[in-house]
């Protein structure tokens, strides 16, 4: 077992990297990949607390997060393909129809 503070700091680092990717990258596929990074950081946190609290609930939650992430990736990539088909770009800066 690893000490809990190490796990928390490690997952905070991964989550921050994911936030940076979502905010800074312009390629929509890379934005989705950064979201996966954030979800994984959350999972590491959940499993770490599951070990620290000696309860399996954290691992169950991580399983649910993985299932939701799989659904999210399916929908997200379908939207990216649709975007590419309609606008010939997957650059999120150029998709500004709803921007005021």
């Amino acid at each position: 077992m690893i000490r809990l503070p190490l796990v928390l700091v490690f997952s905070a680092l991964l989550f921050s990297a994911g936030v940076y990717g979502v905010l800074a990258r312009r390629n929509a596929v890379l934005v989705l990949m950064s979201i996966e990074l954030m979800l994984n950081a959350v999972n590491v946190n959940l499993v770490g607390f599951s070990a620290a609290l000696r309860s399996l609930t954290g691992q169950i939650f991580a399983l649910f997060v993985i299932a939701v992430a799989a659904a999210e990736v399916g929908i997200g990539l379908a939207i990216v393909i649709l975007l590419f088909r309609n606008r010939e770009t997957i650059n999120v800066d150029e998709v500004n129809l709803l921007k005021w």
Binding site: M1, V44, Q59, A62
Partner: peptide, 16 residues
């Protein structure tokens, strides 16, 4: 991250 799951006592999540 899968290796961390193994370290934290979650071998099933490692496989998943």
């Amino acid at each position: 991250i899968a290796v961390f799951y193994l370290l934290l006592g979650a071998p099933f999540l490692f496989a998943v």
